[in-house]
Amino acid sequence: MKSNNCFKLPFCIYFVFLLFSLSGCASNEMRPMYGLNNFLFQSSNSLREPSLGSKWLVALVNYQGKDQIEMIDINRKKRIPLPGINRADSQPISVSISANGERLALIRQRADQTELLIYRRKVASLQPIVLSPKGIPRRVSLDSSGRVLAVQVSRSGKWDVEVIRLNV
């Protein structure tokens, strides 16, 4: 009887330790969104520079050696067309999406120019944003409304961050 008690106590301690360990593992786990991840994996062999809106993912996807901006509806696992945003003569560098998916900010290389632009999905229009003083944009981030953007700019060999509020 006594020996049974001796066995039970260490087993309880072991069990409690096991529970703690398992709960510790569980708290560090992120749950992959398998369905969407499979869709992303099958739809392209190279995807980078992700930016999440409320229901949207935009990223740079590589098709036959050329980068393009792609927008994906996360819930429907479906590509959303972005007419006029990808051009044969330009290479996107950075992209960011507003929360409602209506506006995208992008940086692209075209000939010897690096351009910062806002794309409005409703009207499929691209609006250039002029940096003053001049600089070379490298990375962009848009707020949820799509009216404030932060840009990493190279000026005189130094990286700066500039915040721009758009009135239109």
Binding site: S144, A150, V161
Partner: peptide, 14 residues
């Protein structure tokens, strides 16, 4: 040097 900017959704924090 300042790099990798990211705005909060409400545009008040960077």
């Amino acid at each position: 040097n300042q790099e990798d900017p990211a705005l909060s959704g409400d545009g008040t924090k960077l």
